[in-house]
Design a protein around this nucleic acid. Sequence first.
DNA 1: TGTTCGTTTCTTGCATGCAATGACCTTCCC
DNA 2: GGGAAGGTCATTGCATGCAAGAAACGAACA
Lengths: 263, 263
Amino acid sequence: MAIELARPAHRTQITKAVLRLRELIFNGHFSPGERMAELLLVELLGVSRTPVRLALAELEHEGLLRGLPTGGYVVREFTQGDVRDAIELRGVLEGTAARFAAERGATARDLTALRATNETIKTLVHRGDYESFERYLRLNETFHARLLKMARSPLLVRAMEGVVSLPFAGPGAFVLAEAELPASRDILVIAYRHHIGLVEAIERRQGERAESLAREHARLALANLEIVVEHRDVLERLPGAALITLTDEPDPDPAPEPQPEPA
Amino acid sequence: MAIELARPAHRTQITKAVLRLRELIFNGHFSPGERMAELLLVELLGVSRTPVRLALAELEHEGLLRGLPTGGYVVREFTQGDVRDAIELRGVLEGTAARFAAERGATARDLTALRATNETIKTLVHRGDYESFERYLRLNETFHARLLKMARSPLLVRAMEGVVSLPFAGPGAFVLAEAELPASRDILVIAYRHHIGLVEAIERRQGERAESLAREHARLALANLEIVVEHRDVLERLPGAALITLTDEPDPDPAPEPQPEPA
DNA sequence: TGTTCGTTTCTTGCATGCAATGACCTTCCC
DNA sequence: GGGAAGGTCATTGCATGCAAGAAACGAACA
């Protein structure tokens, strides 16, 4: 996921296969549980079995596929609880990034860059057109990428990559849906406020505050998720939606034997 | 890492290559930065290029190797700061596991199992023989594995696997060294206390307390690390030590431009 | 002596053939 | 009719050959 971003795009057959496969999976071309036969993919992707095999291994590590004990891969299925956990987990890791940035000290240059991004975001928050949402999405990712970089922790970057490789776990997950659902428009205002607070906390070296804010910030995606599942027509147009099975029960992961609060 | 544990051990050439390569890397058979030529590994491992290639990809995802933009892999190098971050990161994830377990409710069966493990650990804490340390190590891993399971979050399990795949980040990292360094013997006592507190917090649904305890618990490994680096002869016998470059500076990641506390 | 260009060797990326294992279907027996 | 056993088909695991590209070496020139 880091390699492919380094621009060579289609330089090797493997990346070509990975990119195309990801796209196909996100678009719902394969159903969860469906077996990914190598020969089928050979004629589908136009590359031979060797790069296909490598690409499948890559996607397994990303979490999109699941390897069968007998060999071969199937498309992985995600429950609503998985989505919730992915978002919560991103919050935990971004919280750690924010805390690291605060504890280890940020450069004035980094802080200025974050503020500049926020300034532009501010002008977009109250617009409603689709183009503004797209710009917001890009700026939001810029903000989060820089924040992660400011933690100065390669291992944290790795861990984050492992989580946001899931399509519905990225910082912009479910945001595009807001363009069509004014009900969640206020969330952008709150998100902007979170950004402001994050920069302030990092500058003042308030690690715990930065961590809390980043966690709460990620939970906005959760709020978005809940709004979106109420509008399945919107949900189904989002990438990766085909991988998610919606549960009707309100609590998607009930305690099997809830213990009462003794203290 | 989950697949291989599923017993087939050497059933495929790939797992054979992965296991052997991991062993070679941990033992320092390759130096950090050294190129892992496929043909060299073919005659070293006794398998053909195809499984070698797959194994290399696997180890890259584990974080032990780094892929070069031009192709091929080199052994990755870890700084003391990486080790510190890995431990801190494990603390963050185990904290999340503990919090999830507390928030989502634990079964009486799980709590009982944790307590039983702790009871046995209690009898080992004050012994000093090597065998007791090995038993402690196994029980400690049992405790942490169960805790993780109690979070009921497959994605959290994945994230954790991504972190503890590094040899020095596991729950038992640097513990074996204590068998030879009585200076750090007290740490076992503290660790035991943490375990007790964790079970209590989870039972009482005190999520935040559980999270804090788990984080602090992981930081014991950090204390161990600091003790161990003072005794390089011990450090160098630990697996994976050959991958770590020791920095002499006390603060391994200094702030480039520390901001004063304005508030 | 330092630098640059050309050549050679090594290394990886890819395709394909072969073999073995697992899945599935048919058939036969109870 | 149900279950078990046999056989057939499909799919994956592995090895190897070939070609393109990179790296290293050496030679020639400034």
